[in-house]
Measured scan of single mutants.
Amino acid sequence: NQASVVANQLIPISTALTLVMMRSEVVTPVGIPAEDIPRLVSMTVNRAVPLGTTLMPDMVKGYA
């Protein structure tokens, strides 16, 4: 089972991601792979991401 990136807090729309905002967790459905966390830092989300939500590729500008 692959770990995915999960929001560690509410991430408001257009917020630049930082390490403290994300954690890795094995979830269903599978989202962005946890090993991509370093790549996600400073990318922005294009929607509000509630606490505990799995980050999907279409939620992060420039990721997909």
Rank of each mutant, 00 (worst) to 15 (best):
V30W: 13
D36W: 09
M59K: 02
D36C: 15
A16P: 15
A3L: 10
P33Q: 07
S4H: 01
V41P: 00
P33D: 05
V49H: 01
S24C: 08
T44I: 12
A64W: 05
A64E: 10
G31T: 00
I37G: 04
V5C: 06
T54L: 04
S14P: 02
I37V: 06
L40I: 10
T54G: 02
Q2M: 14
R39A: 08
M56F: 14
M43H: 07
V5I: 13
M56W: 05
M22G: 00
V5D: 03
V27K: 10
A3W: 07
V60A: 02
E35I: 11
P33L: 11
A16C: 08
V45N: 01
I37K: 05
L19G: 07
N46L: 14
T28K: 07
T28P: 01
T18H: 04
L17M: 07
I32M: 03
V6R: 03
S14C: 13
S42I: 03
V41A: 05
M56K: 10
S24K: 09
I32C: 04
V26K: 07
A3Y: 09
I11R: 00
L17N: 00
V26L: 14
V5P: 03
S14G: 15
P38K: 10
V6T: 06
V41N: 03
P12F: 05
L19E: 06
L51Y: 14
T18Q: 08
A7N: 01
T54I: 09
G62Y: 09
L51R: 09
V5L: 02
Q2P: 15
L17A: 00
L10H: 13
A3R: 07
N8K: 09
N1M: 15
V5F: 03
I32E: 01
I11D: 01
M59G: 02
M21D: 04
P57M: 07
L40D: 00
M22K: 00
V20H: 14
E25V: 09
V30H: 15
D58L: 11
P29N: 04
A34V: 09
V26T: 10
G52S: 06
M59T: 06
V6H: 01
L51M: 15
T18K: 10
T44Q: 10
N1C: 07
I37A: 07
T53E: 07
T15W: 08
Q9V: 12
L10E: 15
T28W: 08
V6C: 05
V30M: 14
A7D: 01
D36S: 10
K61M: 10
V60W: 01
Q9N: 06
N8F: 04
M43W: 07
P38Y: 09
T18G: 04
L55T: 01
P50H: 09
P57Q: 07
V27A: 06
T53M: 12
V6W: 03
M43E: 04
T44H: 13
T54E: 02
T54D: 01
G62R: 06
N1A: 15
R47V: 14
M43G: 02
M21H: 08
P57Y: 08
P57G: 07
N8P: 02
T54N: 02
P38I: 12
M43P: 00
I37T: 07
E25K: 07
A64M: 14
L17V: 03
G62P: 05
A16L: 09
M56A: 06
S4P: 02
A7G: 03
V5S: 02
P29H: 05
L17D: 01
P50W: 08
P38W: 11
P38L: 10
L10V: 10
L10Q: 14
V20A: 14
S4I: 02
Y63M: 04
L19P: 06
A34I: 07
P38D: 08
L19W: 13
V26H: 12
V45S: 05
R47E: 09
P33Y: 10
Y63E: 03
Q2L: 14
L55V: 09
S24A: 14
V30R: 06
M43T: 04
N46I: 08
N1E: 15
G62D: 12
L19Y: 12
A7M: 04
I37P: 00
A48I: 12
S4L: 02
G31F: 03
M22N: 00
D36M: 13
I37H: 02
K61N: 14
A48M: 14
I13R: 12
E35N: 09
D58K: 08
A48N: 15
P38S: 12
T44S: 12
V27P: 00
V45W: 01
A7K: 01
E35P: 08
A16S: 11
D36T: 07
A3N: 08
D58E: 12
I13Y: 12
V27W: 03
M21T: 02
I13S: 12
L10G: 10
V49K: 00
T18R: 09
S14T: 10
T28C: 15
S4N: 02
I32T: 02
G62W: 08
V27H: 03
V5A: 12
G52R: 04
R23K: 12
N8C: 06
I13Q: 14
P29G: 03
V20G: 12
I32P: 00
T28M: 10
V5T: 07
T44E: 08
M43K: 09
I32F: 02
R23F: 04
A3T: 13
N8A: 13
V30A: 11
N8V: 10
P57H: 07
P50D: 15
Q2N: 14
E25S: 10
V30L: 14
R23E: 04
T53S: 11
T44R: 14
G62V: 04
A48Y: 15
V27G: 02
A48W: 09
A34E: 08
V30I: 14
S24M: 10
G62L: 06
I13H: 12
S14Y: 15
P12D: 09
M43C: 10
A3F: 11
E35K: 08
P12I: 04
A34H: 07
L40S: 00
V30D: 10
G31L: 03
V49Y: 02
A34W: 06
E25A: 13
L51Q: 15
V5N: 02
S24I: 08
V26A: 13
T53D: 13
D36R: 08
A16F: 08
I13D: 14
Q2I: 13
K61E: 13
V30Q: 11
T53N: 11
Q9A: 13
N8E: 07
D36E: 15
I32D: 00
V26C: 12
L40A: 00
T53I: 10
Y63I: 04
N46S: 13
Y63D: 03
D58A: 10
D58V: 08
T15L: 05
S42K: 12
P57A: 15
T18N: 05
M59Q: 05
M43N: 04
P50E: 13
N1Y: 15
T53V: 15
M56P: 01
P33T: 08
R23G: 07
D58G: 11
S42W: 11
L17Y: 00
S42H: 13
S42T: 14
T54M: 04
